[in-house]
Every structure is written in C-alpha cells, then in structure tokens.
C-alpha cells in the first residue's frame, strides 16, 4: 500500500482529533476552521480511496485473502468525518466537538487496520 499516504491520513486525523478535543475541553462548539480541517482530512481520505482502487484495478491485492475486508475499510474511511460533521452541526456545544474528535480518532484507528489488512492480517475482520 501507499504507506506515506496512510501515515499522513493517520497523523492528520490524530491532529484533528486533538484540535477538536481541545475545543471540547474548553467548552467550545466546532467552528468554521474545524470544518476546514475536516475537509482537508476528508480530501486526503478520498485521494486514498481513489489511489487504492486504482491499484486494486491494476491487479495488486492485499496479502492473504483480505480483499473484501480491505475494500470495506477503504469505503468506510471517507464516511467517518461527514457523519460526525453532520452530527456536530446539530449539536452546537462542546459535545459536538467531542463527537468530531471521536470520529477523527476512529479514522486514525481505521488507518492502522487498513495497513494491517493490506499486510495480510484479517484477524479483526
């Protein structure tokens, strides 16, 4: 897999989680800047989706028989931030920020799993 991109997505997602977690700690709702941050990370995940699909169509496959699992992770990943973004729109309090932070954290964990599945580990399904 494209390790630099996976790492970039993971790290930016973690930074986003920290940023929104900090806003939640200070009792602030998500603001436009946070949404810009979400949009940036979302763009990275979409790039990841396109690149990974292109590689799959080129005949590259994850080690083992993890293709189905890999693709399901791949398409779930870009959904994380839009979902929590919408939830945060309806919750203009610190809990909206906490929700976005949680979504970004899930995104970072999914990056780990994605790399894991590509390397042949299907244990987590």
């Amino acid at each position: 897999m494209l390790t630099p991109l996976t790492v970039t997505v993971g790290v930016t997602a973690l930074l986003l989680a920290l940023w929104c977690g900090y806003a939640a700690l200070r009792g602030q709702p998500v603001k436009d800047w946070h949404y810009l941050g979400m949009a940036l990370v979302l763009l990275l995940t979409l790039a990841q989706l396109v690149i990974a699909l292109a590689r799959l169509s080129n005949g590259e496959r994850p080690a083992g028989d993890g293709t189905a699992v890999f693709v399901s992770y791949l398409v779930s990943i870009p959904l994380c931030l839009p979902v929590v973004g919408v939830v945060a729109l309806g919750e203009r309090s610190r809990w909206g920020s906490a929700t976005v932070a949680a979504g970004a954290l899930v995104l970072a964990v999914l990056q780990l799993r994605l790399a894991d599945v590509w390397a042949g580990g299907t244990g987590g399904g």
Binding site: V83, V84, V87, W95, A98, T99, G103
Partner: peptide
C-alpha cells in the same frame, strides 16, 4: 439525544456498523 448523549449515540452507531 443532545449533549453527551449525542457523542454516546455516535459511538454506539460506529460500533453497530
């Protein structure tokens, strides 16, 4: 459905999926 409940519902949604 509001406040901390929002976060909890979202997390449970993630785990359901």
């Amino acid at each position: 459905r509001h406040g901390p409940g929002r976060l909890l519902v979202t997390l449970y949604g993630v785990f359901t999926v």
